[in-house]
Design a binder for these strands. Sequence first.
RNA 1: GCGGGUGUCGUAUAGCGGUUAUUAUCCCAGUUUUCCAAACUGGUGAUCGGAGUUCGACUCUCCGCACCCGCACCA
Length: 459
Amino acid sequence: MTEVKLEDIVSLAKRRGFIYPGSEIYGGLAGTYDYGPLGIALKRNITNLWWKMFVEDREDMYGIDSTIVMNPDVWVASGHVATFNDPLIEDVKTKKRYRLDHLLEEQGVEDVDAMTLEQMAQVIKDRRLKSPDGNELGAPAQFNMMFKTHVGPVEDDDSVAYLRPETAQGMFTNFKNVVDSFYPDLPFGLAQIGRSFRNEISPGNFIFRLRELEIMELEYFIHPGDWEGIFDAWLAAQHEWFEKLGLDASRIKEHEVPEADRAHYSKRTVDCFYDFPSLGFSELAGLAYRTDFDLKSHQEHSGKNLEYRPKDGGEAFVPHVIEPTFGLDRHVMAVLSNAYTEDEVNGEKRIYLKLPAHLAPVKVAVLPLAKNKPELVAKAREVYAMLKKELGSVMWVDTGNIGKNYRKMDEIGVPYCVTVDFDTLEGETAGTVTVRHRDTTEQKRVTIESLTKELRGHE
RNA sequence: GCGGGUGUCGUAUAGCGGUUAUUAUCCCAGUUUUCCAAACUGGUGAUCGGAGUUCGACUCUCCGCACCCGCACCA
C-alpha cells in the first residue's frame, strides 16, 4: 500500500464535508479551518466521549465552562503576559531568526527579562553584538502570541484584554468557587472543553497548528505527597482514552520531557505523540505536574486565600495540580488519519474511513436497491424513518447505483448500509433487509424488527 | 516574520496576449440496472483578489491573500 499523505486526508475532508479552509470565498485566513456537517459530528462524538469518560463516569470531576475574555491580571499571574511576548531578531545575511532575550543572556547581559525592546536594541548597538554566525543583526521585533482586544468602547491601554491562549486559567480562577460550592475531598479535578487563541508565527499542517483551536483539559488537584502515583494513573488513563478512540497503539508514543525543556515549575511532563501522515510523530496530548505554581501565583496576585483545608482538621495548604491536556482539533486529525484506509475490492481501489462505529458521524445509511422501483423506494423510506427515529444519525441514499452508493458511504466512514431489495417485499424472506458491513463489505440478512438491535449490538 | 516554490470547475488537470477556457472524475436530473464506483443522454460548476501595461490579460508587471518546503517560533 502506498504511503498515506496528509494532502489525501485534507482533500477527502474538504470533498466530503468534514473540514473546509476558513473564510474560503474571501481567499482564506491563515491558521483557520471550519468544520463542515460531518466534521462537527465527528468532533462532537469525540468531545462527548471525553466528557463521559473524564467527567460523568467519575466521582471526583467537576465540569466548568469559563469565559474566553478574562481579567488581564489573570494572564499576568499565569506568566503569559511575560512569556508569550517573544522579542525576535534577524541575522541580516542568513535571515535566520533568534530569540533576542536568549541571545543577550548568552552574551552575559544581565536582567534581560526586565528590559524593554528599545533597551535591548540599545545594548546590541552599544556592544556591537553580532549574530551567532558573525553577521550584522537587524532591528528587533516583538511577537505577541496572545490575541488582543478591548473591553468596552474605548480602545486605550487601560481597556486591553486578551483572548485566552489556554483554558487552564479559567479552572484555576474557579478553584475557590467549586470548593465553596461542593467542598470535594482531595484529590478532585476540574474539566473544561473550549476555544483558545494563539497568534502563531507560523500556523499550518492542516488543523495541526491553528490560530483558533479547541482544548479538552483537566486540572487535577492533589496533596503534593501523592503526585507520583497519581501521575502514573493519569498516564494510564490517557492510554485508555486513546484506546477508546481506536487509535493504533503503534502510532502512539510517549515522550518524557527532559528537565531542561520543562517549565521551571514542572517536576514531570510527558507528551503523547501520534504518528500523523506526512508529519510523523507530533504532539497530541500532554501530561504535566505543575506543582502549586498556578494556584500560588493566583493567590499572590489576587490576594485571595486559595488554600484547601482538609476535612480531618489538618493544616490548610495550596494543593498541587496535575494537568492532562488534549488538543481537540489534533484529535480529529488523528482519528481521521487513523481511519483513512485504502484497499481493493474487485480489483478497484477503494478509499474508506475505518472509523469506530461510536465515532462515525453517520451510523447507518439506508438504500433502495434501485431507485426507479417505487415499491422498493417506498419500503426503504419506511425503514429509514424507523431507524432515523431510533438511531438519529441515519442517512438516506438513492442516487447512482448500488455499488457507487456503498463506496460513497465507505468514504465518509458509515459502518453499516441497510439495503431494501426485492426479497424484502415478498416470498419467504419478506420483511428482511441486508446489512452490509463497511470494512468487510459482507452482507447479512436480518428482519426489519431486529434491525435496531442488530445495529446497536455492534456499537 | 524571512527565503524559495505554487495558485485554472468540488478533485485532478490542458492550454493560450484575442478560445464558447480542455479533459477526466465528482456532483445533479433522466433512461437503464435484482448488490459493490457498468452504460447512455442532458446539466451545474473554474482562471485566488486588486491595480497596472495593452485595442484586448487566465496568460505580462506590481501589490495583496492563501497553501507547500526551509528558517525561526511552539510558554
